[in-house]
Design a protein around this nucleic acid. Structure first.
Lengths: 203, 203
DNA sequence: GAGTCTTGTTGACCGGCGGTCGACAGCGAC
DNA sequence: GTCGCTGTCGACCGCCGGTCAACAAGACTC
């Protein structure tokens, strides 16, 4: 006989398994389409165990995204003290590369039919951090003028819009997208009335 | 005695009352924070009656947004056969005016659009229609080159990002935002490698 | 005013959801 | 072998979105 009724796993192993499964399921189905019971069944465990590892469905969902988010933030974090132009280059390269490697995840997050505040805050958080970095590089730490701030924030939205088009239509090269993004940033800064700052991005 | 157990209302009246209440509640609380039972209680009716008027919670939610959406689409629809430059002017003016008048609704939609497929489709629908109109004006009906299409689609995102910044920070004038939007569109078109089309927007 | 018809309205009900809890069982220590 | 730690489970809870047959408000007849 023997045949244990269930397989006992190490905490970290189990956690990792659940996160991986969750990441897969949540890119295949919308948040509301998945119940915790389904997820547990899929993982071959009981619902209670799933709740033993994650305090709520939301928390579980966010946790499945967090690895990607921290990875993305790390990838777009430029080496310290680089001049603004190179820092921007690095950030953009990191961003586009990550997106190309995680097409489905990126699109899913952008469209997330799951929507709860947490995801929005995650996305907005990344945008806010990137904007702060960019503005810092442009103004040298001074608080930015309103129009410039709006231009940069808008540009970060532009980035997501253009990237979605890129991934969905598949008729543009990464370099073209890069050029479009950089050129539009220059255009937005100019339109905000601070063309003099462009010199910093051309260094 | 007498005192009827409930007040009987005309269908249209009841429907209008529910839509108005829903619009108010949904701008005050998040979708998931409201249950249909709560909404019904608030309206002084039974949950079943709410379901008699709207087939589902999602449908009710979308219906509360739809009046605003159709209003917005109508407001941004330029008079037929206007030259591209003036059509764009009209669209932009209509858009910014509506946003200023419906601050809370706009922010609510932008923030929940990540959340529910229906809302996202509503927003994406408006964007797609606007993009098509804009591209039509630029290319004269020809299918747009990929880079230009991506630039326009990205710009529509830029618009929403910049508008959110505008509404949240309240330190910019509407004309400044208008200038930022127009200038950035020019920058994006230039960056897409189709600067020659700018002439059409300067007429 | 009694009867009747239409239809706006309701209370009771359902399956399933997210979430909880006490008890069970796999396994290393001794 | 048995004991203790803890990973694991089945059973349960309150509430949610959604359904349904039946009731009653009020206009219309005679």
């Amino acid at each position: 006989m023997a045949e244990p009724a269930y397989q006992r796993l190490d905490v970290d192993e189990r956690r990792a398994q659940l996160l991986e499964l969750g990441a897969r399921l949540f890119t295949e189905h919308a948040y509301d389409e998945l119940s915790m019971a389904q997820i547990a069944r899929e993982a071959g465990i009981s619902k209670a165990l799933l709740y033993h590892y994650f305090p709520s469905k939301q928390a579980f969902f966010v946790a499945t995204l967090e690895r990607g988010a921290t990875e993305l933030v790390a990838l777009t974090e430029p080496a310290a003290d680089l001049p603004p132009a190179q820092a921007l280059d690095q950030t953009l390269d990191g961003f586009l590369a990550w997106i190309e490697d995680h097409r489905e995840t990126y699109l899913k997050v952008m469209r997330s039919s799951t929507g709860h505040a947490e995801v929005r805050e995650l996305v907005e958080g990344v945008r806010a951090e990137t904007a702060a970095r960019l503005l810092d590089g442009l103004t040298g730490g001074e608080p930015p003028p309103p129009a410039l701030r709006a231009a940069v924030r808008g540009w970060l939205w532009f980035m997501d819009g253009a990237c979605q088009d890129w991934l969905e239509q598949e008729d543009l090269g990464r370099d073209e997208v890069r050029g479009l993004l950089l050129g539009t940033l220059a255009g937005a800064i100019t339109a905000s009335g601070h063309a003099e700052l462009l010199a910093k991005l051309a260094e």
